[in-house]
Computed example of a mutant assay.
Amino acid sequence: MKRLKAGDIIYRLFAIVFFLIFIYPIYFTVVSSFKTNTEIWNTMFALPSKIEWSNYTSAIFDVGILRAVLNSFIFSFGACMVVVVFVTMAAYVAARKLIRFSGALRLYYLLGLMIPPYAMLIPIVTMFTNFGFRDKYWPMILLYAAINFPMSFYLITGYIEGISKELDEAAIVDGCSTTGIVFRIIFPIASPGIFTGAIISFLAVYNELIFANTLLTNQAMKTISVRLLGLQGERFTSYGPMFASIVLSIVPILIIYLIFQEKVESGMAAGAVKG
């Protein structure tokens, strides 16, 4: 048997400690979703003495968490698609300096990173109210896409700058248009960086609360974060359905990750190498 060095032992101990730290919230959430309020407080770490399936039925039918998950997914996927398409085109223009004001374009999106989105909450609410954009999918999707545009822009621009311009020149010789170059040449090569930007945008929208809570008044349009916030009462909170709702909201993200696992890992690894 190979003898472990002191550094290897310390490394493995740290790995085990961090694994336990990160796995505990998941364990606590899943286990608590099958308990009553009393059992959650009295036996926080123990397994449930009796499985309370009523927590999940309450989360589905009373809380309406499945509709909230669908709404969050629609907003996230829609914003993600808008970001991927338009950011890729804007990033190509900036990276290749196809317009005279490429530097000003970069500065413009830099301001988008510097100014917190919630600092513009009041004018955005006013605009949505005056134009009748409340409780509609497309205005919210475009708003979320605009919020996540700057971060993805800089991420994808940096990736495209690492792609040789000779590919563009060869495509032009073959009669390819600028749009064709972006979607036929650049998009496949820069897909790891683009996919990383898409992941960041998707998760940011999926977990967003402030704009959703302010701009969505129709109960049928509520997102996951707003639904979970509504479960918190002033005098009493039913924690069983709350934890069940959290578990049901996590499941779609896990499924998406398992389906696109290779893309996620390759995108993050490529981003790390580029950085």
Rank of each mutant, 00 (worst) to 15 (best):
I246R: 02
L229I: 11
N148P: 09
F19E: 11
A212V: 12
R96N: 05
L105V: 14
S201C: 10
Q219F: 15
L248M: 13
M44Y: 13
L143W: 12
L66M: 12
F187G: 01
V125L: 14
L111S: 08
T217M: 13
M44C: 14
Y27N: 07
F133S: 09
F195A: 05
G175F: 10
Y109K: 00
A171C: 09
V82G: 01
I189T: 05
F22M: 15
F202N: 04
F131E: 14
R96L: 05
L143S: 07
Y109T: 00
V125F: 12
I160L: 02
L216F: 15
R67N: 09
I26V: 15
I60W: 15
M127A: 11
A15M: 07
D62P: 01
A198R: 09
G78H: 03
L66K: 09
F86E: 00
T157W: 12
V93K: 00
V83T: 13
A272C: 13
F34C: 09
P150R: 00
M114T: 13
A95D: 08
V82P: 01
K263Y: 11
I9W: 04
G233S: 07
K136Q: 13
T57Y: 15
M127L: 13
F149Y: 10
A46R: 08
G112E: 02
A272Q: 13
T36L: 02
I253C: 13
L254F: 15
F101M: 15
T223I: 02
I186F: 08
S58D: 15
I259F: 12
V247L: 05
I210G: 05
I259C: 07
Y108M: 01
P25Y: 11
T57H: 14
I141A: 04
L70C: 04
A244T: 04
G233F: 04
K50H: 15
I224M: 03
A68G: 05
R3S: 08
P48M: 10
G197M: 07
